[in-house]
Simulated assay, not measured.
Amino acid sequence: MHSSFASAMPRITIALNEKDHRALKLLSLRDSRRLSELIDDAIKIYLTSAGGYGLSISEATPEPTDRGQSSNG
């Protein structure tokens, strides 16, 4: 049975090349951990190192372009 917290988490699907999938699967077997735990840890490490947790919507959204000007001059 799933906890209410787990069911509320957004889910994503990713595609891995064969080499990466095999390496992750072997690591998960070696460490007796689920594959999803390894991927979750990797994402958290990346977000921490790249400053992702400190971003706000205004920083992540590109500046709007002026669509009112004609490119013909």
Score class of each variant (00 low, 15 high):
Gly54Leu: 03
Thr48Lys: 13
Asn72Arg: 01
Ala6Leu: 06
Leu35Thr: 00
Glu18Tyr: 07
Asp66Leu: 10
Lys44Gly: 14
Met1Tyr: 02
Gly68Leu: 11
Leu16Val: 01
Ser28Met: 04
Arg22Val: 08
Asp66Met: 10
Met1Lys: 01
Arg67Ser: 12
Asp66Phe: 14
Arg30Phe: 01
Arg67Phe: 10
Thr13Arg: 08
Gly51Phe: 11
Gly52Thr: 11
Ser71Ile: 03
Ser49Met: 04
Phe5Arg: 02
Glu63Trp: 06
Ile39Gln: 00
Ala23Pro: 04
Ala6Tyr: 10
Leu47Val: 09
Arg33Glu: 15
Lys25Gly: 09
Lys25Thr: 14
Leu29Ala: 11
Leu16Pro: 06
Ser71Asn: 05
Ala23Thr: 10
Leu47Trp: 14
Leu38Ser: 02
Leu29Cys: 09
Ile45Thr: 09
Ser36Thr: 01
Pro62Phe: 07
Asn17Asp: 13
Ser32Cys: 10
Lys44Asp: 15
Ala23Gly: 06
Gly54Ile: 05
Arg34Cys: 05
Ser32Gln: 11
His2Gln: 13
Ala50Lys: 06
Leu27His: 07
Leu35Gly: 04
Leu35Glu: 05
Ile43Leu: 15
Met9Ile: 04
Pro62Gln: 11
Ile43Gln: 08
Arg67Trp: 11
Arg67Pro: 10
Thr48Ser: 15
Phe5Val: 00
Glu59Lys: 04
Asp31Leu: 06
Thr13Gly: 13
Ala60Thr: 14
Asn17Thr: 04
Asp20Met: 03
